[in-house]
């Protein structure tokens, strides 16, 4: 039976970009617009761009927080992308202090640089330093380049969950995995061949 893939539509950015990539790869997917469609899914993708607080408020309004927690506890495949990755953590310091979904211990903080004159947002193609072999990164080039656009990044408490780091001023966690839940700070759906491969790996190999 084909996997029931749902992309969570909570009004935080372009869910269609992710869906376009899945369609291109030959996977059927649909948008989860309410709690019940989250229950039905085998595999959940939480995309998102924008502010952390808005994201949590929106998930709350759509009554999606509990079903997401249930999916996590039951070990469903979950992929958080960009803001979607950050929301999986305990809390964020983006414009105040806000509570997240709390699936992964850790917090989200803003980039801060002493003197290097680095721009914020961190926008463009940067490489992944893969620190842990994982099926999601199978058959990629040695240091694959992927597309980032963000001003905040995750700091996870249990560093053994980190799959890859990326260097911007200093190394930060650009991919993690806990059980069947993956978080990616970059946009696989905008990372050409490498990104499509990562999405395919997530769906097929993990």
């Amino acid at each position: 039976m084909p996997m029931n893939i749902k992309i969570i539509d909570y009004d935080m950015g372009n869910v269609h970009s992710v869906q376009n990539a899945l369609t291109f790869l030959g996977y059927e997917s649909s948008l989860a617009v309410d709690a019940s469609s989250i229950h039905e899914a085998d595999c959940l993708i939480l995309p998102g761009v924008g502010a952390f607080e808005d994201g949590m408020v929106s998930l709350h309004k759509k009554k999606m927080i509990e079903p997401l927690k249930e999916a996590f506890v039951r070990g469903k495949k979950i992929l958080g992308i960009c803001l979607g990755m950050q929301l999986l953590l305990d809390k964020s310091y983006e414009m105040g202090e806000h509570v997240g979904l709390g699936f992964i211990k850790g917090e989200v903080t803003r980039f801060s640089f002493d003197s290097e004159g680095l721009k914020i947002p961190h926008m463009g193609w940067n490489s992944l330093d893969i620190s842990k072999k994982d099926p999601i990164f199978e058959n990629l080039p040695e240091t694959p380049y992927v597309y980032f656009v963000h001003s905040y990044h995750v700091k996870i408490t249990d560093e053994s969950l980190i799959l890859a780091t990326t260097h911007y001023g200093k190394p930060f966690c650009s991919a993690f995995k806990s059980g069947q839940t993956y978080g990616l700070q970059f946009h696989p759906e905008k990372s050409q061949e490498v990104g499509l491969k990562i999405l395919k790996n997530f769906l097929e190999n993990t």
Partner: peptide
């Protein structure tokens, strides 16, 4: 274009 090309 967005259905066929996967870059920003």
């Amino acid at each position: 274009t967005a259905e066929a090309v996967f870059m920003p």
